[in-house]
Design a protein around this nucleic acid. Structure first.
Length: 583
DNA sequence: CGACCTACGTA
DNA sequence: CGTACGTAGGTCGT
């Protein structure tokens, strides 16, 4: 057995408005508020610990803001989400998870924040009960704000260490001989939470002039005042409405009125969604005008001048808040359009002078993840190819396009029968992988929770999304694999969550590794987009950063998958503008 | 004013 | 070829 490298010591850190406290082996110290970054840097340099935090966001905002590197953390909130599923992970939820208490009974702050009220969200008041715990053994709702003096901060830090131990033991019980994999998931999810703070701090570089030009091309010049804005808006509407004389008063923003409008020109549709209207594009000029109007209206309302003014800072960086994992399968989420920026605006995402982007996206990540999760040797063999669908097609004796449709249908759940025959061939060729998907589907139908490869619990009970929790109105016809009712929806949800969630874990492990290796090059990850990374780096280090991105994938994938048999590939390029990416 | 619906952007 | 998310504007009911 190779010698295991020594584990870093676990040091709990709690940061409050009145100061901070660190507790660990040989560490027991209170820090004054202004001293936190300096003391953090000293201890990081000396003991090089894994920092135990209630959450990265609540603890490390100031440290990240000071530009310090936070190398290793154990994020109690992220570990809780992994172990117990769902999204809620306040210190109260973490404690409830560790003590086996009812999560629904976790104390909530006494009053909701009022609009316009800029006071404290929590219940800190003179003469309040001094105890950290309330009836039932729950943590008090305002624990972090309650810790206003060193002795209380210390109490919270020690509690954090205790919770870490309980979580670690839970991972070991749960994972058995695979508990190392679960532990590594906690590490990379924790790193992703730190990365989120860096993404919020650094922002995405924007060429503001280019953005203004693109917006202007779509919705006209920046309005000078309210009246001008209304005038421009009316003009945009008129370009559609002139195709329907007599109905100029139609509100294009009201779907019911739009449906009536379409009916008046002979287009009868159940709803006015773009994909429904697309076939009618050339039957009446109104339809084409309406669909163009929708595109411009999207820019005007969501990605227009107001968006630019509100979210792009004076340093020309687009900022929004980032969450390391959503409440479902565990993907990263971002606000202010960072995750759904329309492709036409991408030319405006431009590296700062003297810098370039290294852009990389994972190729065919979901079927490759399926090969890992299912441990299907035959399917793993197909991942050796750059294009996974080529060997699958060869094995099926089918066209590549047909093989691709079959694989996607198997993973996502086909409802149209087009892929039916190829799917049967797929079941014969890769019974292990297809068996995993079938079991996940059945688990979803039966409301049994499932876990991702890295161990994240996907709940299918009351905590699952409402659309997934609905009762089936009618049992589907016997033998109908792709039921259209609520049962089918749950089955598809579970099947997709395992693949999507496991892919999210690999992505975060990759991102955490990239973050570590590009930092010495002056590189920053500035965007994470589910399977795509954008790294901002001084141009003299572009090729080194690109190599680090590639190497990081090899390392992260091998560690995450626990095998070399499944290959992951990235398309990596050095660009100045995001729009230069090839797809 | 919040809940819900429709619609659409991204992966 | 399904799942997920964030945003905005509409309506409806309180």
């Amino acid at each position: 057995m190779p010698e295991q490298p020594p584990r870093p010591p676990l040091v709990a850190l709690v940061v409050g408005p009145q100061g901070a406290y660190a507790v660990g082996p040989g560490v027991d110290e209170a820090w004054a508020p202004g001293d936190v970054p300096r003391r953090f840097a000293e201890l990081a340099e000396g003991a090089a610990p894994r920092w135990v935090v209630w959450s990265a966001a609540s603890t490390l905002h100031g440290v990240i803001g000071a530009g310090l590197d936070v190398a290793r953390t154990w994020d109690l909130a992220e570990a809780h989400r992994l172990l117990h599923g769902g999204w809620w992970a306040t210190p109260g939820h973490v404690v409830a998870g560790c003590r086996g208490l009812d999560e629904a009974a976790v104390p909530a702050p006494r009053s909701a924040r009022l609009r316009g009220f800029d006071g404290d969200l929590f219940d800190v008041a003179a003469g309040e009960d001094a105890a950290l715990f309330v009836a039932g053994g729950h943590l008090r709702a305002d624990a972090l704000a309650w810790a206003s003096e060193p002795s209380r901060l210390r109490e919270l830090a020690q509690l954090a260490l205790e919770c870490q131990q309980v979580q670690q033991q839970a991972l070991e019980r749960l994972g058995g001989r695979h508990s190392g994999r679960l532990e590594r998931t906690v590490w990379s999810e924790s790193a992703a939470a730190v990365l989120c703070l860096e993404l919020e701090r650094d922002g995405l570089p924007v060429d503001r002039a280019a953005a203004e030009d693109l917006i202007a091309a779509s919705v006209g010049p920046r309005p000078r005042n309210e009246a001008d804005a209304a005038c421009i808006r009316a003009e945009r509407d008129a370009a559609v409405l002139r195709h329907a004389p007599g109905r100029e008063r139609t509100d294009l923003r009201n779907p019911a009125q739009v449906r009536d409008l379409l009916l008046s020109v002979g287009v009868d549709v159940p709803n006015t969604r773009a994909w429904v209207l697309e076939p009618y594009r050339h039957t009446h000029p109104l339809v084409d005008a309406l669909l163009r109007w929708r595109k411009d209206e999207r820019i005007a309302t969501t990605y227009g001048y107001r968006w630019l003014d509100d979210h792009v800072g004076p340093d020309d960086r687009l900022r929004g808040s980032w969450t390391p994992c959503d409440g479902g399968a565990g993907r990263m989420t971002a606000q202010n359009g960072l995750h759904n920026l329309p492709a036409p605006l991408r030319p405006a995402i431009c590296a700062a002078p003297g810098h370039v982007f290294v852009r990389a996206d994972l190729g065919q990540i979901e079927p490759r993840v399926l090969a890992v999760v299912s441990a299907d040797r035959a399917f793993a063999e197909a991942t050796r190819a750059d294009d996974l669908y080529a060997p699958v097609a060869a094995k099926l004796g089918a066209e590549r396009a047909r093989a691709k449709v079959a694989v996607l249908a198997a993973m996502y759940g086909q409802r149209s029968g087009a892929a039916g025959e190829a799917l049967k061939d797929l079941e014969r060729a890769y019974p292990v992988a297809m068996g995993l998907l079938d079991r996940a589907y059945a688990d979803g139908v039966a409301r049994r929770p499932v876990r991702t490869w890295g161990g994240r619990l996907i709940r299918l009970g009351s905590a699952a999304p409402a659309s997934v929790d609905a009762e089936a109105p009618q049992p589907p016809a016997g033998g109908d694999f792709s039921g259209t009712g609520a049962e089918g929806a749950r089955g598809r949800y579970a099947r997709n969550a395992i693949i999507q969630g496991s892919a999210a874990e690999l992505f975060k492990a990759w991102a955490a590794t990239v973050r570590h290796y590009v930092r010495p090059l002056g590189g920053q990850i500035v965007l994470c987009l589910h399977d795509e990374l954008l790294v901002h780096v001084p141009e003299q280090h572009a090729s080194a950063a690109a190599a680090a991105v590639e190497q990081s994938l090899t390392t992260a994938a091998r560690t995450w998958a626990g095998t070399d048999e499944v290959r992951f590939v990235a398309d990596t390029s050095v660009i100045r503008r995001w729009s230069e990416a090839k797809p």
